[in-house]
Amino acid sequence: MSLSREDVEKVSLLSRLKLSEDELVVMTDQMSRIIDYIDLLSEVNTDDVEPMTHAVEQFNVFADDVVHQSLPRDEALANAPKRDDECFHVPAVLGD
């Protein structure tokens, strides 16, 4: 088992996911098996190989500096689970 339950719990916090105790157990087993599999790459010699970040390597794509109409606020807020006329609402961040 390459990952411990604690490792997986830590990753779940970094991932902003709340996993139940059962999910943590299953996830630990499944992730460990996948990690063991992807460890296959360690046998490839990649000395002096440049990493390839994109399929088509393009450079410096600039947009023209022109003012456009952006999404109206009402439309931007339309799908918000909780809002008022101007803002998205989140649970209290300060004074907890």
């Binding site: 997986v8 779940s12 970094l14 991932s15 996948i34 992807i38 990649t46 990493p51």
Partner: peptide, 22 residues
């Protein structure tokens, strides 16, 4: 979860960067 793990500190070079090279 997998992606968060392979990008996390200490594993980035071994997994993500390695994969980009392959």
């Amino acid at each position: 979860m997998l992606g968060t793990y392979t990008l996390s500190a200490g594993y980035y070079d071994a997994y993500y960067l390695k994969a980009l090279k392959v």
